[in-house]
Amino acid sequence: MDSYVFFRVGKYNFAIAIKQVVEVLDIVKTQILPKTPQFVVGVANFRGEILPIIDLTTMFKLNSTDELDKRYIVVLKYFMENTESFLGLSVDKVLGVSEGKVEELERLSQMPLQQVKQYTVSGVQLGDDFAFLLDIDGLLQAIAMEIMRYVNSKK
């Protein structure tokens, strides 16, 4: 069984394979990145590297359930277009790391969330509950598409 990082966005649980996660940060100081959609929180200085941060709550059009004064950043490292980059995902709460078994959503008797359908095809059992497993490549492509659409609309 593989290990996953589990976190909460709105009232839903999500999971990302741990091999794609660099680390989890507490809230960091960000600076806005002009000309980007609302879900782009901004950029942060992550040990001398540029870390752009995406708010998954906004991106997934969900509402944070509790009045959270604190958010967590899940830092990913990814390769695209021959370059290595970092991306931070801002989430409501990180639940922890544990092993899990991947199942088809139907077998978990769950319907995929409409907003995240294109990058969640499976789920991971999490105790009595379960989490949507994020397909990172699909998520990154969706983010890139959204940004491109936004930039072009502003031209």
């Binding site: 000309k35 950029v43 540029i50 695209m80 980059s85 890139a144 930039v151």
Partner: peptide, 19 residues
């Protein structure tokens, strides 16, 4: 020059960022 990351490819008014 540090790049913002491939997902920001369309944001071409910036060459990148620097610290």
């Amino acid at each position: 020059i540090k790049n913002l990351g491939a997902v920001f490819y369309a944001l071409d008014i910036f060459i990148g960022a620097s610290i």
